[in-house]
Amino acid sequence: MFDLLGTTLPSRLLLGTAQYPSPAILADAVKASGTSVVTVSLRREMAGRRGGEKFWSLIRALDTRILPNTAGCHSVKEAVTTAKMAREVFGTSWIKLEVIGNHDTLQPDVFGLVEAARILCEDGFSVFPYTTDDLVVAERLLEAGCKVLMPWCAPIGSALGPVNIMALRSLRGHFPDIPMIVDAGLGRPSHAATVMELGFDAVLLNTAVAKAADPVGMARAFGKAVEAGREAFCSGMLEPRDVAVPSTPAIGRAVFS
């Protein structure tokens, strides 16, 4: 169980809903992962098409919490307006706040992110900021009113896994009581297990599952990895050492010469 902003969640895996081969596979992957939070977005509706209706029905049938995003927003104004529109449509004050600063890396514009976070927190939103692993930016986001942080571990969709363990470890160490969800860049279940072993509270991923050869199987694998990583963190892992230490007792061994 995982307490996130006063909500008890059965899973520490948050899952995106984009890029799946079909709506049915998306639904099956969500179930297989065990997730209880899915991310969604808002996009332009086509006149007369009722395009959002089917997806909205599918999402409601999943019976999970919804975390809308502001994906694709490149300015504070865009992100704030999109967040307000999402709150009305999805009926939640949770918002995954993205203010993108670079087209190639999709890394956040952290200055705009802090500004947008402050505006939205003052307006009653629970802001989940998609941020880098920068410690000072994290401090500013908390000062702006954020109660949770979502640092990347690598660029969105890159599948690189945690590229800067030291920064993630430092972030975790500085804010031991702030819920932190590693968002973006995870490629394999072992990546998820690694960041969970570092003590992060949860992970959010999408592409690694949706673009796998078998998204349902991969969703299940990520669910297990997240559980394994968390249990390992809570169980106290050995620190690496440079010398060998026999695991079988040396006392009582036979002498044959």
């Binding site: 809903t17 984009a18 977005s41 808002l42 996009r43 332009r44 509706e45 529109m85 592409t207």
Partner: peptide, 10 residues
């Protein structure tokens, strides 16, 4: 005018 609706998202 922008008219938006729910869509898949990450």
């Amino acid at each position: 005018i922008e008219i938006l609706s729910p869509m898949q998202g990450g």
